[in-house]
């Protein structure tokens, strides 16, 4: 899980370059103004690259926080 969180943090650093790294793990679409639908697409594409997984957008629907994304990735990786 730690490894997943570190890799996900790297995706956040690229998708949200202005965000303070200390805030990645508590970030969500609700508390991050730059996190719009386009940023979500970029984030999911970065996740696809970083974790080497095929990202199905429907699978990630509603995953709009760091925590929820990490949980979803963890499930996909466990099932792989």
């Amino acid at each position: 899980m730690d490894n997943i969180q570190d890799k996900l943090a790297r995706c956040f650093s690229l998708a949200f370059p202005k965000m303070d790294p200390g805030q990645y793990r508590t970030a969500s679409a609700e508390n991050t103004s730059q996190w719009d639908s386009m940023a979500q697409v970029t984030l999911l594409s970065l996740i696809g690259e970083e974790f080497g997984i095929e990202v199905n957008f429907e699978q990630f629907e509603g995953a709009t926080s760091f925590e929820a994304l990490a949980r979803q990735i963890s499930e996909i990786c466990a099932g792989a």
Binding site: R10, C11, L14, P17, T42, E49
Partner: peptide
């Protein structure tokens, strides 16, 4: 180039 690399180049 991967998307992550492209974003990194832009940021740097």
């Amino acid at each position: 180039m991967r998307l992550g690399e492209a974003l990194q180049i832009i940021q740097q």
